[in-house]
Design a protein around this nucleic acid. Structure first.
Lengths: 221, 221
DNA sequence: AGCGCGATGTAATCAACGCTTACATAATGG
DNA sequence: CCATTATGTAAGCGTTGATTACATCGCGCT
């Protein structure tokens, strides 16, 4: 709106590529910008609409459909990006964890998992819920997610190998561990922790306590 | 559309009350019918819209707003009804459980919880997510939910009193237990169990295993 | 009785949304 | 240099939640 009175194209043949100063007819990388806008939109708690993303990109309401066949495809791309960020952070946390003890690594994993979910609730919701776009519409997302599961499986397998666990029913322990961590994260962002939830530190403390309780429960006495 | 050629009101002054044959101008109990329609809509996997609920009640699109100030209020009423049904079933399951052992009761609770969530995924989603209407817009719902939490707390307190638990940090055990059960239920309906999820019996078996693992983890050796 | 008024429905309308189509313009490469 | 393709705009469709003005019922009061 503001720029409606500006010279329509600034310079007829700007040749200005990287500058991006006056939004040439062809947007730099609209696809990326739309994904970022949608991510930001979600992070603000607003519901993501294609139109609003287009609005933030200062582009007509129909433009996004040049890059995404439909809203679901946008959301799938958004989910992919969120999942990528999630994975990066998890792996960073594990890189800092001691490599020796498998259960200590599991603990670090769980804490990083919960922490990211707490700090990026809307993005976590998009990633984990599968209710924001047609299920299985992104192979990359399911692959990334499977990789994360495989990661925890490896940690617990290692724990068994190290003789740390009471039970050797790996599958059962794996599912329980996933359910515990996922459940804790979701309880948080589904509002199941009344309003002592304001203190992030307190929640992390709870997460530690819960994970430690679980670990001590499955550990050999 | 089809009835556009019918006689406008069938009989000018029907005086037909209970018959409902020709849908009198005043619907019997539109509020209840709308809630039921919305519940059914959700159960069918469709997304709940006020218009569609009105359509199923054979009523004009504006009529629901005589009973609910907005869509959120309808959804809140729907959630209340779903929560009521949930609670009834949980309590029925606990009525059948042995009163003696507190942990056995906890186990029965968890299984009933997961089972209901599996069989009523959309309703469970509406109840538990708090993302389908303004948070805290129904006092009854939060009260019912709090009562359920208090129920599990009582069971675990009793377990402590019976000297069954290793840890006496009740709060921690309570949160872990809730996270485990909630997480398992949500993983299910969020599609985290690929497609061996088709077998309901298998999932229940997994639920048993996971809950038993947890209980044995917190039990005194 | 009857009638008046509140309760409850309808009809028409609005803005926002997802999505499609026809068209305009920029970028690119033969 | 120009034609082809990529990418944006403009306009419009059908659906949704929500509001407003109006129609109709039915209960309670005198």
């Amino acid at each position: 709106m503001l720029e409606s009175a500006m010279s329509p194209r600034q310079i007829s043949k700007p040749r200005a590529r990287q500058t991006r100063e006056a939004r040439p007819y062809h947007h730099g990388d609209l696809r990326r910008v739309l994904i970022d806008a949608a991510l930001q939109l979600a992070a603000e708690g607003a519901e993501v609409s294609v139109r609003e993303a287009a609005r933030r990109a200062a582009v007509s309401p129909g433009a996004p459909f040049r890059h995404f066949p439909n809203r679901d495809a946008l959301m799938a791309a958004v989910a992919e990006e969120a999942q990528r960020r999630f994975r990066v952070e998890i792996e960073a946390a594990l890189a800092d964890a001691p490599a020796a003890n498998a259960l200590a690594r599991f603990r670090a994993f769980g804490l990083a998992y919960v922490r990211w979910a707490m700090r990026n609730p809307a993005h976590f919701e998009i990633i984990s819920t599968g209710r924001y776009f047609a299920h299985g519409s992104s192979a990359e997302l399911t692959r990334d997610n499977a990789e994360l599961i495989a990661l925890t499986e490896r940690m617990l397998t290692e724990a068994v190998a190290q003789g740390l666990l009471r039970s050797t029913d790996l599958k059962r322990v794996l599912i329980a561990g996933r359910a515990l961590i996922y459940g804790f994260a979701r309880m948080n962002l589904d509002g199941h922790f009344p309003r002592w939830g304001v203190e992030e530190a307190e929640i992390e403390e709870m997460a530690e306590g819960v994970i430690d309780l679980f670990i001590s429960g499955i550990s050999k006495p």
